[in-house]
């Protein structure tokens, strides 16, 4: 497998891996965003909480999520490694550099932007993923009348008023006309977290960082894997700007803002 190690030790091979993981993370963002839109549903979080269960139990999604974690780690650390290596290619710095004359600042700041994003991911996963998996998220009980469609929800508490837990993520059964769903209430957690203005600020800054990172990163990934065509590259570049640079980060940013001002 000499050829493999040669490939992945070459500058282009290493960049290929960064590009592929990066583009994979871009597709994840779209999935993540479309899932998160459940937050805006006026059902006290039922759809969102069910989505969360699906995402954490479906075997296919679970497998993909491990790939995702690995990609994040690889993308981040390979990126940092390459940035350090690239820096060493110019041991004596210029006294004056007019970078803005020839390139966009985002393209020159991928390391910094990426580091902000990495820190954000740690915070974000600590807040929600870790809490969901290992923390003490209370359960909620949704009752939906199957005839009228009317939906009510109550926190799942014991006789003593203390939160009750069940030993699985979700339970679903039918009681007469009613469908009962008991599920971990991550929605409430989200709602509560985003009352903290500092956290909201961190999220907003991080979304900006993601926007700037992807404004360069998305189209750059295609360039690295060799996709450059006079007809299609302009499309990729406008996707980079509008979809990944503006729409997706704005959409994500709208969530903390929504709950903060709710």
């Amino acid at each position: 497998m000499n050829w493999l190690s040669k490939l992945f030790n070459s500058s282009i091979g290493q960049k290929l891996l960064v590009a592929l993981t990066g583009l994979f993370l871009c597709t994840f963002l779209i999935v993540h965003l479309s899932g998160n839109f459940q937050l805006f549903k006026n059902d006290n979080g039922m759809a969102f909480n069910l989505y969360t269960v699906f995402m954490t139990t479906n075997p296919f999604i679970k497998t993909v999520s491990y790939v995702l974690y690995a990609s994040i780690l690889f993308h981040a650390f390979k990126g940092i490694h390459l940035a350090i290596k690239n820096r060493s290619a110019r041991p004596v710095a210029y006294a004056t550099v007019d970078g803005k004359a020839n390139s966009h600042w985002t393209s020159r700041s991928m390391g910094v932007l990426g580091t902000i994003i990495l820190v954000f991911i740690v915070v974000h996963m600590g807040d929600f993923w870790y809490e969901y998996k290992f923390g003490h998220i209370p359960y909620i009980r949704y009752t939906q009348n199957m005839v009228t469609g009317e939906l009510t929800s109550t926190p799942l508490v014991g006789m003593d008023g203390q939160p009750l837990t069940i030993n699985k993520k979700m339970e679903e059964f039918v009681d007469g006309d009613n469908k009962i769903i008991i599920v971990k209430d991550l929605y409430a957690e989200v709602k509560e977290e985003f009352t903290n203005p500092l956290l909201v600020l961190i999220y907003l800054i991080s979304m900006a960082a993601i926007g700037f990172h992807l404004f360069h990163g998305f189209q750059s990934g295609f360039q690295t894997i060799g996709v450059n065509h006079p007809k299609y590259t302009p499309i990729l570049k406008s996707l980079s700007l509008w979809l990944f640079g503006i729409i997706i980060p704005l959409a994500f940013a709208s969530m903390p803002l929504y709950f903060y001002f709710l």
């Binding site: 500058s11 960049k15 290619a89 393209s107 020159r108 360069h216």
Partner: peptide, 17 residues
């Protein structure tokens, strides 16, 4: 490309500079 790398040039990050 191998020679490029061996000479100690950095890798491309598509800044376009």
């Amino acid at each position: 490309v191998a020679q490029h790398d061996a000479e100690g040039f950095g890798s491309c990050t598509n800044t376009g500079a």
